[in-house]
């Protein structure tokens, strides 16, 4: 119905009719809606056809992903992750088995470290002599002072110079 040139003030009959129609609609429409079986209508609707007509690409193009990402609280997600459970499920031995040790030695400084540290029989002999020397030093120190009756005082002696070794605390 086209808009009338007449205003409700100048057309009281039209206004009255409109009010009547409004009142009728308010009563009739709920009755009609209640009478309608929505489920039956839905069963007749072919959703696949509707979906196939939807252009998803256009919808996706309109989505601003950056804004969505900005609203994601990563900290809260991370807090909820149980890292310990993830670690327990990782098979470290399987990972280690996959490591190519030869390539690791060739391509990293590990090779030079191993070369420096594994220098053969002479180094092994030296290591043994040094460690045995330490043992012998302890023995001589302990028994020498025991002979002069200073066995207990040894415990209070400093292990090394103050710049190299933390001084012992005195126990009272």
């Amino acid at each position: 119905m086209s808009q009338s040139r007449w205003s409700p003030v100048s057309n009281p009959i039209g206004a009255r009719v409109e009010q009547l129609a409004q009142s009728l609609a308010e009563h009739i429409v709920p009755l009609i809606v209640d009478a309608i079986d929505i489920d039956a209508i839905l069963e007749k609707v072919d959703v696949d056809k509707i979906v196939s007509k939807v252009d998803v690409d256009k919808i996706v193009d309109r989505v601003d992903v950056d804004k969505i990402v900005e609203r994601v609280d990563i900290e809260r997600i991370v807090e909820r992750i149980d890292v310990q459970k993830i670690i327990e499920r990782v098979d470290v031995n399987a990972i280690v088995d996959e490591i190519d040790i030869d390539a690791l030695v060739e391509q990293t400084e590990l090779g030079s470290i191993i070369a420096r540290s594994t220098t053969g029989v002479a180094t092994e002999i030296l290591d043994v002599i040094r460690s045995q020397g330490v043992g012998l030093d302890d023995f001589i120190l302990r028994w020498g002072n025991r002979l002069v009756g200073r066995r207990r005082r040894l415990a209070t002696w400093p292990d090394g110079p103050p710049l190299l070794v933390t001084p012992k605390r005195s126990i009272r």
């Binding site: 040094r130 460690s131 020397g133 012998l136 030093d137 120190l141 090394g160």
Partner: peptide, 17 residues
């Protein structure tokens, strides 16, 4: 006997050798 002794006073046997 090894790592723990670095910086400690050396004893008679080691010094004699």
């Amino acid at each position: 006997m090894t790592v723990g002794r670095q910086g400690h006073y050396a004893g008679a046997a080691s010094r004699l050798v």
